[in-house]
Nucleic acid binder design. Structure first.
Lengths: 200, 200
DNA sequence: TCTTTATCAAACAGGGTGTTGATAAGTCAA
DNA sequence: TTGACTTATCAACACCCTGTTTGATAAAGA
């Protein structure tokens, strides 16, 4: 679990195992990766692997926890003042950290990534930053292409909430909710960009 | 792949296998489910499983494809006219279908669900419906709790797009984009709900 | 230097995997 | 319905990966 008080040997073992694991993850799905495979690539005994992790998925979990811990660390460095301008720097820091660890982050956050990890990241960011955000003006037209991605995946969250609430709301209500959410957002979109641009 | 021209035996085999698979999926993660386990529960020979599917994940894929095909069928029944009111019925249909197949849908769409499947569903809905949506009024305040889910997961899509574009945009730009997307939406949220309604 | 402990090779039972040829069930035409 | 043809299902097989244990070795830390 901890990594600070780790032996020098342990640090090496975990490092090469992680490197081999990521290399394999870039080639194929985690379900197709065997412990034996990881250890052979890293030149580490299989028993040593089991001394640290239960299986591939536990290994993946620990990698994710380490990432989240570091992201939180980056966030905490800005907690002192809540000014909007500083908040922007804060989010920038996160993206910077993701870029630094692009190899693993791309695996976790991209198309075939881990939804649960993504939610954990955004819960972190959301609660710390976006909650106490201040309005600071109109949206820039350059962001147009991101609005689609935003609204699209935003719908996923609505569905998940619905399912988690055991579908108490009627399908009709959900239909209207989705409609309004997307319509209102696109209305906003239209009223914010009146330069004469089109998207898609 | 096809299911219409299947043998009577094949239909039975696939049915009981699917049922056992879903039952197991409700208990534990797909990575912890063995082919042997599925077949024993379904009382089907393992070789028979391999005659139809490569592994658990291929099995899951075929189940998802079947779901998507049916959802698309539900959508196609409404393609004739594009009126907003009818579009609402259309989305309602989807939610209705999801509710009918709640057992598997809850597995696929909920917290620990499959992000790729979710995106496929919403790509389907988005392109067919939300693209040519018409503004029809202000949002109801009853949807408030869904707005958070919406904005939260909406951010995921932005990140994914960024990663898929090989992070061409600078972290700074991304920071500002996220900030504006969420800020603008919350501004809208504030200005749209000034009544005092509740629903449940 | 001395103590601690992580890594290793080897070996093990156990279980899951993927493929074989034989058997039984389904399909369709007469 | 019968019979012939087709094909899905099955039991059994050899193989590989897993997860754990052993005691020996050597590297780390104090």
């Amino acid at each position: 679990m901890g990594s600070k008080k780790d032996d020098r040997r342990v640090r090496y073992t975990k490092m090469v195992l992680k490197d081999s694991f990521i290399t394999l993850l870039e080639k194929k799905d985690i379900s197709k990766i065997s412990i034996k495979e990881i250890c052979e690539d890293a030149d580490i005994n299989r028993a040593t692997f089991y001394a640290h992790y239960n299986d591939q998925y536990d290994f993946m979990n620990q990698i994710q926890n380490e990432l989240l811990k570091n992201i939180e660390k980056h966030l905490s460095a800005f907690v002192q003042n809540d000014l909007p301008i500083v908040l922007a720097d804060m989010v920038e820091q996160i993206f910077g950290y993701v870029k630094e660890n692009a190899r693993i982050c791309k695996l976790l956050l991209s198309e075939r990534g881990d939804l649960n990890f993504q939610k954990r990241v955004f819960m972190l960011v959301y609660e710390k930053i976006i909650n106490n955000i201040a309005r600071d003006g109109a949206i820039s037209k350059a962001d147009a292409e991101y609005i689609h991605a935003f609204t699209l995946t935003g719908c996923i969250g609505v569905i998940q909430k619905w399912l988690n609430d055991d579908m108490k709301k009627s399908p009709r209500f959900m239909a209207e909710t989705i409609m309004k959410l997307t319509t209102v957002y696109q209305d906003l979109y239209r009223s914010s960009f009146k330069e004469g641009h089109e998207s898609r």
